[in-house]
């Protein structure tokens, strides 16, 4: 037994195994390491909790997907300085946007879609993708006509303002004609957004004449559904392959439609099935010809 233990005072009476200086140093290092771990945990949790981007806050054109963007953006504000329309802002602590990152609110000042995209050029890190050179290809969000109850066109009026201000008029927003069942005499021209062309610039939301816009720009993941990877549209596949991929289908007879080509369910004027009984409560008797009963009397 030649190893001196700290308690073995006979062997090493003066020198403790751990000197006070060394103990202090170790305590300091342990404190620093512990502080570092707490720091990492606190900061990580805070960042995790606050990484959500409010739905009405839109990123500048060319912004990387949100996860990458939060790793890439130094929060320097050079894009904000480059914007000629004061559209972009840097989030201050307390805003519903990760602190210091650039965003814009479409309802306040929408993106004017400059052709030279000046906000991307000064970005030092590539958080705004310099590969984006065609502003029409940018996807800042997606317009959604979110409220069908207040949109004036849905009420049967011809507001059309969102359609008129759209920089990609007739591509990103079209007016789709539909029968106005309420007045029955008129058409409704419904503003309809097409994701293939909408950049999410927000001009429609900014221009909407309502107190609260009926059309809003939402982040694309919030606005869009996604088909399962394995989904195929039969009609597209048939087109692509010049015929059905699953061969001829079994044709089962449909009662009442015997003698018609398979799948044709159209009913001609002369073959309308007669209603079995007139409803006596109905003051407008069903006319003899088929189709939608407008109940409109001149």
């Amino acid at each position: 037994m030649s190893v001196a233990r700290p308690t073995d005072r006979a062997d090493a009476p003066e020198k403790p195994a751990v000197s006070p200086a060394r103990r202090k140093f170790l305590a300091g290092m342990a404190g620093a390491a512990g502080g570092g771990c707490l720091m990492a945990l606190g900061v990580g949790l805070y960042a995790r909790q606050n990484r959500a981007l409010a739905a009405q806050a839109l990123r500048p054109p060319g912004a990387l997907p949100e996860g990458d963007f939060l790793a890439a953006c130094t929060r320097c504000g050079l894009c904000v300085r480059a914007c000629p329309y004061d559209t972009l802002k840097l989030a201050a602590p307390g805003d519903p946007v990760p602190t210091g990152t650039p965003y814009f609110t479409a309802r306040d000042i929408p993106c004017e879609m400059c052709e030279d995209i000046p906000c991307i050029k000064p970005c030092p890190t590539g958080a705004l993708d310099p590969e984006l050179t065609d502003i029409a290809a940018s996807r800042m969000g997606l317009a959604v006509l979110i409220d069908h109850e207040t949109c004036l066109n849905f009420l049967g009026l011809r507001c059309d303002v969102c359609y008129r201000v759209c920089p990609a008029i007739d591509k990103a927003i079209t007016l789709e004609r539909q029968h106005n069942a309420r007045s029955d005499r008129h058409a409704m021209l419904l503003p309809t957004v097409h994701s293939g062309h909408c950049t999410g610039c927000g001009k429609c939301e900014a221009a909407c004449v309502l107190e609260e816009a009926a059309i809003k720009i939402l982040p694309a993941p919030l606005a869009q559904g996604r088909l399962g990877e394995h989904y195929r549209k039969g009609w597209e596949e048939r087109e692509k392959h010049g015929g059905s991929l699953i061969g001829e289908q079994v044709e089962l007879p449909v009662r009442g439609l015997e003698g018609k080509p398979y799948g044709d369910s159209r009913v001609g004027d002369d073959e309308s099935p007669k209603p079995e009984q007139e409803d006596p409560a109905d003051e407008h008797p069903t006319p003899s010809h088929p189709g939608i009963n407008s109940r409109w009397q001149p």
Binding site: G31, A32, A33, G36, V43, G44, A47, L70, A71, P98
Partner: peptide, 22 residues
Amino acid sequence: YGFLAGTLIAAAVTGTLAWEWL
């Protein structure tokens, strides 16, 4: 120095510039 390491670990774990929030 512990804090410095902590901020870098937080960045690595969250994949964001976590410290720049604070």
